[in-house]
């Protein structure tokens, strides 16, 4: 935040950036627990399971669960909540290891699923 009075270049609200630094939300962790990896277009869903006793979901965890009541691609989730992808991945790792969230589909490399490719082709051609 700049405090350059009289020059009109002070930052307010969102402009001023987050009140809490992004990785404070993950308590400094930069990688998901248990070596989980989450692809950008993997689809996740909340399971409505209760967490085990020691795990206390934070507001950001609850926000993710709220957004994932329907099957949701991770990239859409990330663009909905105002947190960096790396932070979202750590939080997703917490939720999946508690069984509160599950991954419904993941992408592999290379894409050889001709049915999926046909869907993409048909979709594009119908635009």
């Amino acid at each position: 935040m700049t405090t350059n009075d009289g020059h009109g270049d002070r930052w307010f609200d969102r402009e001023a950036g987050p009140v809490v630094r992004p990785y404070a939300v993950t308590k400094g962790r930069t990688l998901p627990s248990g070596g989980a990896s989450f692809g950008l277009i993997d689809v996740v869903i909340a399971t409505n399971e209760r967490p085990s006793a020691p795990f206390r979901p934070g507001p950001e965890h609850r926000q993710i669960l709220n957004l994932c009541r329907r099957p949701t691609p991770i990239v859409d989730l990330t663009s909905e909540i105002d947190l960096p992808l790396g932070v979202v991945r750590v939080l997703l790792g917490d939720l999946t290891s508690e069984g509160m969230l599950r991954v419904l589909s993941t992408q592999k490399q290379p894409v050889t699923d001709q049915r999926l490719l046909r869907m993409v082709l048909d979709g594009l051609e119908s635009l």
Partner: peptide, 12 residues
């Protein structure tokens, strides 16, 4: 997916 009231979208 069905119990969640939404089909799982295919993503590419």
């Amino acid at each position: 997916a069905a119990s969640a009231g939404g089909t799982v979208p295919s993503t590419a």
